[in-house]
C-alpha cells in the first residue's frame, strides 16, 4: 500500500504544482522578526526570565534551601529527584522528606514533586527547556504535581528565536511555559491537567 501511495501522492503533488507559472519564493526575514520589540535582549537573563515566568504562573526560585522550604510549607514531602542532582540538593532537605532517585511507574500517584535538570530557559517567554539528554526521566518531570527544573544561569536564552536556533541534535526537546493548563470548561483557567500544577525554575549557581 505505502510504496504505491507514496508515488501516487507525490505524482499528484507534482501535477498540481507544475502548471504554476512561478512558485512563491522563500521570504527574507531577520532572525528576531517575531521577538517582542519591547523585550530587552541585553537585560540580565535570570531577572528577565523570572519576571516573564511569573507572568505565566511559573515560580522562579534561587537555591536548594528555598525549594526545600517551599515544599515543606506546602506539604509536598514525597518526590522524585534526578540521581545526579540529589547529592548536591540533599543537604537542604531534612529527614521529613522521602525522596526517591529511581522513578517507579507503579508509584505515579505517590510523587508529589519531581526535580530534574533543565537544559535551558527562555527569558522572553519564561519557558524552561527540557531535553532527553539532560532530563533523567520524562515521567519524573511530568507526573508529579510540582516540577522543579534545575537551571544554570549560563543556559538561559534571550528569546524564542535564539532557543530554536540552538535546538541541536537532541531527539526530544520541550519548552514548558508555565504549568499544565486548560480552559476547556467554560473558558475557565484550571492549572495542573495532565502535567504539573506548579512549575518551578530553580536557579543553582
Amino acid at each position: 500500500m505505502s510504496a504505491s501511495s507514496r508515488e501516487a501522492i507525490l505524482n499528484r503533488v507534482r501535477a498540481a504544482l507544475t502548471p504554476l507559472p512561478r512558485r512563491a519564493a522563500y521570504p527574507e526575514f531577520g532572525d528576531n522578526v517575531a521577538t517582542m520589540p519591547a523585550f530587552d535582549r541585553e537585560a540580565d537573563r535570570w531577572t528577565a526570565f523570572s519576571e516573564r515566568q511569573k507572568l505565566v504562573n511559573g515560580m522562579p526560585m534561587v537555591g536548594a534551601t528555598a525549594l526545600a522550604t517551599w515544599l515543606r510549607e506546602n506539604g509536598h514531602l514525597r518526590g522524585y529527584c534526578d540521581p545526579t542532582l540529589w547529592a548536591e540538593l540533599a543537604p537542604a532537605f531534612g529527614p521529613e522528606f522521602s525522596v526517591s532517585t529511581d522513578y517507579d511507574r507503579a508509584q505515579v500517584d505517590e510523587y508529589a514533586f519531581g526535580i530534574t535538570r533543565a537544559a535551558g530557559a527562555i527569558a522572553e517567554t519564561g519557558s524552561i527547556i527540557l531535553n532527553d539528554s539532560t532530563t533523567s526521566r520524562r515521567l519524573g518531570a511530568l507526573t508529579p504535581w510540582v516540577h522543579a527544573a534545575v537551571l544554570r544561569r549560563e543556559n538561559i536564552y534571550s528569546d524564542v528565536a535564539a532557543a530554536i536556533a540552538a535546538l541541536g541534535k537532541d531527539t526530544n526537546i520541550i519548552f514548558c511555559t508555565g504549568p499544565s493548563k486548560t480552559a476547556d470548561v467554560e473558558g475557565i483557567l484550571i492549572e495542573g491537567v495532565h502535567g504539573p500544577g506548579v512549575q518551578i525554575a530553580l536557579l543553582i549557581d
Partner: peptide, 24 residues
C-alpha cells in the same frame, strides 16, 4: 489561538527517544 506567547508545552521531536532516556 489562545492569546498566549507560547502554548504551554511546545515539543520538538526528531525521532524515537534517545538510548539513555528511560521514558518514551
Amino acid at each position: 489561538g489562545t492569546g498566549q506567547q507560547l502554548t504551554s508545552y511546545t515539543e520538538f521531536i526528531t525521532g524515537p527517544k534517545s538510548a539513555a532516556q528511560p521514558d518514551g
